[in-house]
Simulated scan of single mutants.
Amino acid sequence: MEQSLYLKTAISAVRAAEKIIRRYWDDGFDVRLKADESPVTEADIEAERAIRQVIQEQFPSHGFYGEEMGSIRRDAEYSWLIDPIDGTKSFIRRTPFFSTQVALMKGNQIILGVSNAPLYGEMAWAEKGHGAFMNGHPVRVGKVTTLNNAALSLGNIKTLAQGTGWQGLGKIVSGVNRTRGYGDFCHYHMLAAGQVDLVIESDLNILDVAALSVIVEEAGGVITSLDGRQLGLEAKNVLAAATPELHELAREYLRVN
């Protein structure tokens, strides 16, 4: 596909971040805790700074909402959502399950997403109306419509386990063909590529999934909050499925309101 300037810029931005991330991966880094007790490294901060610099050179009037550096011009027509290392805990533990997430929002709609997992060896991207791609090749979700044929991946289910959806989740787990917990970017990449069929995740924020939501939708999937609402800036959980039928089945079991 012919890439827009938005997409070309986003890919250039995550590539700039990748150089920084790889350097810290090879050379080592210090870890500190943020106010919410989540970890952050120099790689997170420098990577976000590099992403903003690349984007600002092309689109100086655009707004930003970043994991480490906060927000500027949030009232702009176009705003970039940035998570420089989604999966910092994996990065710290020296496992490859982390990625750089960059998404573009126009008004209240996410229209573009890039997810680059350099140590895992995958970059996925999508623009509204133009399909989803993995390492340059088109990808498409699977066609499974029933639980008994579905592969399920779970992530960050602590709050779900404490709430009213826990029994429903148990019924889903007992009804699917297989259950895994790939987590972070990985199970969304796999969903978009037809390798899993259903993803249920809680305890997250929109920066964790903004880019991934466009990729899943453009690959033909359905992605919402657990209560079926469109993902927005206040998103805290996700229900993603390969088909509308499978999504609705899961929603009926979970009944999270």
Rank of each mutant, 00 (worst) to 15 (best):
Ser4Cys: 09
Leu5Val: 04
Leu7Phe: 04
Ser12Met: 11
Glu18Met: 03
Glu18Tyr: 02
Lys19Trp: 03
Ile20Val: 11
Arg22Gln: 09
Trp25Ser: 09
Gly28Thr: 12
Phe29Asn: 03
Arg32Glu: 07
Thr41Leu: 03
Arg49Ser: 13
Arg52Phe: 06
Val54Gly: 12
Gln56Cys: 09
Phe59Tyr: 11
His62Cys: 10
Tyr65Glu: 12
Gly70Met: 08
Ile72Cys: 06
Glu77Lys: 15
Tyr78Gly: 02
Arg93Pro: 10
Thr95Tyr: 02
Leu104Asn: 01
Ile110Asn: 02
Ile111Leu: 15
Asn116Ile: 01
Trp125Pro: 08
Trp125Gly: 05
Gly136Glu: 15
Gly136Lys: 12
His137Lys: 08
Lys143Val: 14
Val144Ala: 06
Leu147Arg: 04
Asn148Val: 05
Ala151Pro: 05
Asn156Met: 12
Gly168Cys: 06
Gly168Met: 06
Ser174Ile: 09
Thr179Met: 00
Arg180His: 10
Tyr182Phe: 11
Cys186Ile: 05
Ile206Gln: 04
Leu207Phe: 11
Val209Lys: 00
Val209Phe: 04
Ala210Cys: 07
Glu217Leu: 06
Glu217Pro: 03
Glu218Ser: 09
Thr224Ser: 07
Gln230Arg: 13
Gln230Trp: 07
Gln230Ile: 07
Leu231Glu: 00
Leu233Trp: 08
Ala235Phe: 03
Ala240Gln: 01
Pro244Val: 09
Leu246Met: 04
Leu249Asn: 07
Leu249Lys: 13
Arg251Trp: 10
Glu252Tyr: 12
Tyr253Met: 05
Val256Leu: 13
